[in-house]
Simulated assay, not measured.
Amino acid sequence: MSEKQSKTASSAPPGTRQSRGRARRAAVLAAARRLFAQQGFKGASLAAIAQEAELTDAGLLYHFPSKNHLLLAVVAEGDREQDEALEKVQTAKGLPLIERMAEFGADLEADPLLTALDVTLSAEHLQEDSEVNRYFVARYERFRSMLETAFADAARTGDLRADLDPAAEAVNMTAVIDGLRLQWLLSGGSISMAQNMRDYVRGVIARLRA
């Protein structure tokens, strides 16, 4: 920032400065998400992210003092969006929740950047003892638990077979989602997450009908 820009910024009303600060922070997060998704955490440099966000290196570091701080902020933003997406599912219970999972592939296709970011970061931090690794471990546990509860509820109410294994069904459905996500990305979208997830969920329900 030039001396003139600095004086202009410092003389701007507090609300204007705060608004500009939020906009710059959002620009950094958006740029980091794009580059982390494309190049991974290790491949994307802070300098490249700053350039993508149209900021100086110093401007980026003002908002995020290290690359790790930036990564955790990107992950937290993604977590917030994932929670919002899951709220659509968690309004249902038992069989209705399982039926709603048929559209989860379409939900993932609707946000390709977040989907790519999840795959890239989870693979890159697969065996690390890091905060990002713990984040993905915890999120998978929450997701499987949600599905396990839904299968157990559907069995208890008689909508699905009483002898089904809720834990195994939850693990299998999570694995199918992950596999479709990866195939969708590697195929450039020619393999449909949306349609294949619909087909899978319908097949599961048909197999487990009471």
Rank of each mutant, 00 (worst) to 15 (best):
R34T: 13
L35I: 07
A37Q: 06
Q38A: 15
Q39I: 02
G40C: 03
L46H: 00
A48M: 08
A50M: 04
E52D: 14
T56Q: 08
L60Y: 06
L61V: 00
Y62L: 11
S66C: 09
K67T: 05
K67H: 09
K67L: 02
V74L: 06
V74C: 08
V75A: 03
E81A: 15
D83P: 00
E84Y: 00
E84F: 07
A85T: 05
E87T: 11
V89A: 12
V89P: 00
T91E: 11
K93Q: 15
L95Y: 06
P96I: 02
M101G: 06
A102N: 04
A102L: 06
G105Y: 08
G105C: 05
A106F: 08
D107S: 11
L108D: 07
P112I: 08
P112C: 01
A123C: 06
E128Y: 10
E131G: 09
N133M: 09
F136E: 04
R139P: 04
R139V: 06
Y140H: 15
Y140S: 15
E141I: 09
E141F: 05
R142S: 11
R144D: 12
R144P: 04
S145C: 01
S145Q: 15
T149H: 14
F151P: 07
A155N: 05
R156A: 13
D159M: 10
R161N: 10
A168E: 13
E169K: 10
E169V: 03
